[in-house]
Every structure is written in C-alpha cells, then in structure tokens.
C-alpha cells in the first residue's frame, strides 16, 4: 500500500522533473501575482504588511488550480488514465500518491514565495515553526481536495472552467485559517496561530477521508 503510494508520487514527481511545467510556469506565475499585489496594494508598508498573509495564501490557491489541472492532465493525455487503471494499483494508493505529489510541488513553490514576501513585502518571520507547520498542513488540505476534484472533472468537457468553480469555494476555510495562522507567524496580528492550525488539520482529515471513500468510484465511473 505505502509502496504503491510512493510509486504514484514518484512517477508524478519524475514527470514534473522531466517536463518542468510547475517549475518553469507556476513559479514565475506565483511571483508575478505577488508583485502585482504589491502594485495594487500601494506603496504603503503598513497596508502591504497587513495584507501579506491573505495575498500569500490567495496566490497559493491560484497556483493550486494550475497544479491540480496539470496533475489531472498527466493521466488523461494519451490514455494514461487507462494505464493507471490497468496497472492494478489500489485507487486509495493512487489518491494519496497524487495528493502527496501535488503537496510536495506546492510546498516547494510556497518556500520560494516565503522568500518573495520577505523580499517584496518586507515581511518578518516571528515564528518559523508555526510558519512551516502551517505550510505543511494547509498544503496537504489544498492537495487533498484538489486531487479529489481533479479526478471528478477529468472527463468533463469543460473541466478547465469547472475545476476552479468547484475547488475555490471548498478551499475558502483553508484560505481563512492559513492566513490567520500566518498572521501569527509573521507577527502581524495577535492571534493564536496554533488553534487555526487545528482547524486546518480538521479540514485536511475530513476532506482526505471523503477523497479516500470517493476516489475509486470517480476513477471507475466519472
């Protein structure tokens, strides 16, 4: 089971390593969004600092849509989804494998973005452990819902428009909770970030459970 999860993750990451789609397109996209928010939010340091957490996680959500689309496309181009089915891997292993692959890629992009907000937004890190923990847990949340919805829209003709319509509202609590936790980690707001992390964890568990239950059905029938 774990070996199969890693097999799928390894395959997706290897494909990314070869094609560099995320690295070559998503990273510049994320940085451009950050810079544009900088323009939009004025040269006012105070405004920029107050908005940093929200801007950061909103950008992550946009990046997630791109990453999920890519992860889905790998499996539909040239009958590869069929290959995954014929391979005889348990759907649950496929689900966690693909979730993990998206999460690892997003986490990498987030680390670069942390550098971006420190550089462009003048952010200071008050608590590295909280910052990293938030990135890990929130990324898992985004990847878990994203992988589920990616499989769900895989055979829909209008998948490119339907995916964000479905995914972004579902991720609203992740945006809220991760931003608050970041507010604490960046020392912008006096809140208890660790409590927010708990909420994120709950989201991650609930949505991964639903994904575990539904993924096989979606692969077979939808």
């Amino acid at each position: 089971m774990l070996a199969d999860v890693w097999l799928v993750t390894n395959k997706d990451l290897r494909i990314e390593w070869r094609s560099r789609v995320t690295f070559n397109q998503v990273v510049p996209f994320a940085l451009i969004v950050l810079v544009l928010f900088g323009f939009a939010l004025d040269t006012n340091r105070a405004v920029l600092r107050a908005a940093t957490s929200g801007v950061f996680w909103l950008t992550v959500l946009f990046v997630a849509v791109v990453a999920v689309t890519r992860s889905t496309m790998i499996e539909i181009s040239d009958g590869a989804r069929r290959a995954l089915l014929l391979g005889g891997i348990e759907p649950v292993a496929i689900y966690f494998g693909k979730t993990l692959a998206i999460a690892i890629q997003l986490f990498g992009v987030e680390l670069l973005m942390v550098g971006g907000v420190i550089f462009f937004f003048d952010a200071t890190i008050a608590s590295w452990p909280l910052l990293l923990a938030t990135c890990v847990v929130a990324t898992w949340c985004v990847a878990a819902s994203g992988t589920l919805l990616g499989a769900l829209v895989a055979n829909v003709a209008a998948r490119d428009t339907v995916l964000p319509i479905l995914l972004l509202p579902v991720l609203a609590p992740v945006l809220i909770a991760a931003s608050r936790a970041f507010d604490d980690a960046l020392g912008v707001l006096v809140v208890d970030g660790w409590v927010w992390l708990g909420l994120l964890a709950a989201f991650g568990i609930v949505n991964a459970t639903l994904g575990t239950l539904a993924y096989g059905t979606l692969l077979e029938e939808a």
Binding site: K11, R14, I15, R18, S19, I74, S77, D78, G79, A80, R82, A83, L86
Partner: peptide, 14 residues
C-alpha cells in the same frame, strides 16, 4: 488482461 489500445497508454515524459 493485457490491452493494446489505439493510444499507447504511456507517460510521455517518462
């Protein structure tokens, strides 16, 4: 079963 379809069901980038 082993199925050889129209499309090759391979991962292009691998």
């Amino acid at each position: 079963v082993g199925l050889l379809g129209h499309d090759s069901a391979l991962y292009d980038d691998l």
